[in-house]
Amino acid sequence: MSGPARMRVTGLGMIAPGVDRPDRALGPRPVPAPGWFRVADALPGRGYRRLPAGCLYLLAAARAAAIDTGASFTGTPADRRAAMVGTNNAGAALIEEFDRTIIDLGAAELSPAHVPYMAMSMFAARLAPEHRLRGFDLTTNSPAVAGLDALQSAARALAAGRASVVLAGAVEEPPSPAQRSSTPTAFAPADIGAAILVCEPEDAPVDGATVHGYCATHSAFVPGPDHVRTVLAALWRELVHDGPPPRHIDAVLDDSAIGAAVAAGLPEHARGGGITAVPAASGGGCLTPVRRVVGRLAAPDGRGERTAVVAASAHGHLSVTLVTPAGDPGRRPLPVHTPTTSTTTKGHRP
């Protein structure tokens, strides 16, 4: 079994309450102040007024990331550009509002411009016309890990030749008001905002863009907390099989049985390095782990060391992204990913 594909990151964009730059992504998640996001500042131009909030966060993060990468993104043909975005709660409040409208007034009263957003994947889909992405525009949605899964699927799709550059990341809105108020556990602070990484194949020629670093993501499933230790060990072995182990672990976990078991299993993989425990956003959400990836890639000296970002869902999903910042002093040259025959064929598609 071969290990996960790696990719190179040349652009970063980050929007969340209190966070307007990638190098602040490791900061706290405050309860958002009203008006924290200003459309006119983040997205100058017209055509954004009727979009749902999550869509605006995602467009703003993608715009910043594309600008960060510069010409090597804009110079890539539209057929070779793509997006891969994770989300759990985008549109949750809208769906609830739609259902209330149908129950109380009838479907004829639904807003035509908003109706498509009943499909969560429409949030990422809005990136395609904005950035002329004709390769693909795909949404991942597994609880808690969808953001890291988007990074993983982006790397795999790049290795398979399905695109030359992918805007990969996550977007979240908070759960719907009724869902928040009916749940005994505190929902705030929920995941809100968006994070986008501009990703290219690891071995593609560097086209003038700044290289922030490299990512490789591996995932597994634990069909119950008893399995966590063995599954985690196998996943770790496959993830770091051909490079130095991470110097640090960022663990984004909730208080479920799976979360607790993962937390208990991580120290044996830390090899003396530090573990930063980051509470998962309550009410689900897959943005926080991607924020850790962005923050590690953007962090100035010291905090930019080779880090494993871990996320797990109460339902059994387990994903780990190995982040190697370009300036990591312990970085060895990464072995060149060997493409399979089929991917070579595809990679040479016009």
Binding site: A119, N141, P143, A146, D149, V222, P223
Partner: peptide, 12 residues
């Protein structure tokens, strides 16, 4: 009883 990756995909 899977222990391998479990990927959720949207796209309507």
């Amino acid at each position: 009883g899977s222990r391998r990756g479990n990927i959720g995909v949207g796209n309507a």
